[in-house]
Simulated scan of single mutants.
Amino acid sequence: MTLAVCAGLTLCALVVGAVIHDETGTGGFWVGLGLATVPLPFVVLAVRWLCAVTPVGWRAWSLAFGWGACVATLVALTVNGLVVQWLTDQPARLAPTQPDTLELTLIAPMVEESAKAGALLVVWLRGMARGHGVLVGLAVAGCAAAGFAFTENVLYLGTAFAQDQRLGVWGLWDSATVVTFVVRMVLAPFAHPLFTGLAGLGFGLAVAFGPTLGRWRPALPLVGLGLAMALHSVWNASTSLSLFGFGAVYLLVMAPLLGTLGWVAVTVRRRELRSIRRTLNHYVAAGWLAPGEPAALGSPGARARARRSARRAGGAAGARAMAEYQRAATELAHLRNDAARGRVPDDFTGRERALLHSLWTHRAFASPTTLATAHAPARASGHAPPPSTVPSG
């Protein structure tokens, strides 16, 4: 399955790359590709922050990014042009200099947001842990949107560079490349993640409150997707307004919504951390965890230090053991917390037993390392004390 997914993403990437190269030329393609990588480190940091306490691996985030960068982009490039041509009998350019109003404000938002939301649908269908719904929804949406924006930035920056070359424009203030970079990478690098983040929030809330929503559960993802399309449409329309109109949309609509979405993420993350620390104390009393571990397992910093120490002490096998130990403890906390709130799944006993077995399997190695790095950042930069058992394989 993994090979098939990688092959599919690679094929989409080759097709999209060929289309963009044809539009921008070789020089524009490589300039656009280089400049489009500038925001990627910030995307990685944001996702790591969002998912510091969620048991979702890097493969899921890579899939979401690849989906946005390859699949969603290919869908948008294909469908946007076909729909515009069908409605107007005029072919749509890949990066038009005078974008058609219909495409900008109606077709593109609907097609692009639906395509990016495909990554959320995949995670939804595979089963998103209820306790992590909102954070995972926001993170998957952010990754898919960042991938889409990356490919789109390659196209627009490469096209602008090719235009500068044709016109012989190399001045800083006259350069289309500089203007495009400032608008897309400085003023609005958050645009696509904000749009798709609304859809991610809808999916996440549907997962978090699924049992209480009944047959209305699918409505939340649809509402979130509709809001994403509407905001995308408003933003695209604002680019054709005067400077004052554009600034008003930017300051009165985009910035407040981004701040609100950030506040939601911070609030949910803090609540999850408190829940982990509080709920895991039940397993300390039962002997499954050592005193002090709930505080460490509910601290992103302590978890990161423990993973680094585990890798130094046990190599790749040690890192996997620590990651599995933290995942099992986090899932236990959310499972128990849901049960305490009356949301007891039918397979509660079996899931709890499986998670406890995983916890116990890695405890001899992971517990001492977790405790040793819990309150000692300086010591964590050195070697962890030898664990009682180093996992093999």
Rank of each mutant, 00 (worst) to 15 (best):
80 N>Y: 00
67 W>V: 07
71 V>M: 12
57 G>L: 03
79 V>F: 06
106 L>Q: 06
62 S>Q: 13
111 V>H: 04
103 E>M: 00
116 K>V: 09
104 L>E: 12
65 F>K: 01
60 A>Y: 00
61 W>Q: 15
92 A>Y: 05
81 G>P: 06
61 W>A: 14
112 E>T: 04
90 Q>C: 07
105 T>E: 12
74 L>F: 03
83 V>L: 15
107 I>F: 02
68 G>K: 10
117 A>S: 15
55 P>A: 14
63 L>Y: 04
116 K>G: 08
87 L>N: 14
117 A>K: 08
58 W>K: 09
100 D>I: 10
61 W>H: 05
93 R>G: 11
94 L>D: 11
68 G>P: 09
124 W>N: 01
107 I>H: 03
57 G>M: 12
114 S>H: 09
117 A>G: 13
85 Q>N: 07
120 L>H: 03
105 T>N: 02
69 A>L: 01
112 E>N: 03
62 S>T: 03
77 L>V: 13
67 W>Y: 05
69 A>C: 01
74 L>A: 03
90 Q>R: 15
111 V>I: 12
81 G>H: 07
120 L>R: 12
116 K>A: 11
74 L>V: 00
77 L>K: 04
80 N>C: 06
75 V>L: 14
108 A>K: 08
70 C>R: 00
119 A>V: 10
116 K>F: 13
64 A>S: 05
93 R>Q: 13
73 T>A: 09
87 L>T: 03
69 A>G: 05
84 V>P: 08
66 G>E: 12
101 T>H: 07
98 Q>G: 10
87 L>K: 11
80 N>G: 00
77 L>C: 02
66 G>T: 06
85 Q>P: 02
66 G>M: 05
124 W>F: 01
122 V>T: 03
64 A>Y: 07
104 L>V: 05
108 A>D: 01
114 S>D: 07
74 L>K: 04
111 V>Q: 05
68 G>I: 13
87 L>E: 09
120 L>V: 09
119 A>I: 10
118 G>A: 04
70 C>T: 06
106 L>A: 14
105 T>D: 03
54 T>D: 15
70 C>N: 04
57 G>T: 02
121 L>G: 01
70 C>K: 00
69 A>D: 02
118 G>V: 05
91 P>S: 08
63 L>G: 05
81 G>S: 02
119 A>Q: 13
76 A>Q: 14
57 G>I: 00
97 T>Q: 14
65 F>M: 02
80 N>P: 03
90 Q>M: 08
124 W>D: 07
60 A>M: 09
84 V>W: 09
94 L>G: 13
117 A>R: 08
107 I>A: 02
122 V>P: 02
94 L>Q: 11
67 W>E: 07
122 V>W: 07
75 V>A: 10
119 A>D: 09
111 V>F: 00
73 T>C: 06
107 I>W: 06
98 Q>F: 04
75 V>P: 04
93 R>S: 14
124 W>L: 04
67 W>Q: 11
97 T>L: 15
106 L>K: 09
64 A>E: 14
112 E>W: 13
81 G>N: 05
100 D>S: 11
65 F>V: 10
119 A>E: 04
72 A>Y: 09
109 P>T: 00
60 A>H: 08
64 A>Q: 12
87 L>I: 09
55 P>F: 01
71 V>G: 02
122 V>Y: 02
109 P>I: 00
93 R>M: 06
60 A>K: 02
96 P>F: 04
90 Q>S: 11
79 V>R: 01
64 A>C: 03
103 E>K: 00
125 L>M: 02
76 A>L: 15
94 L>E: 07
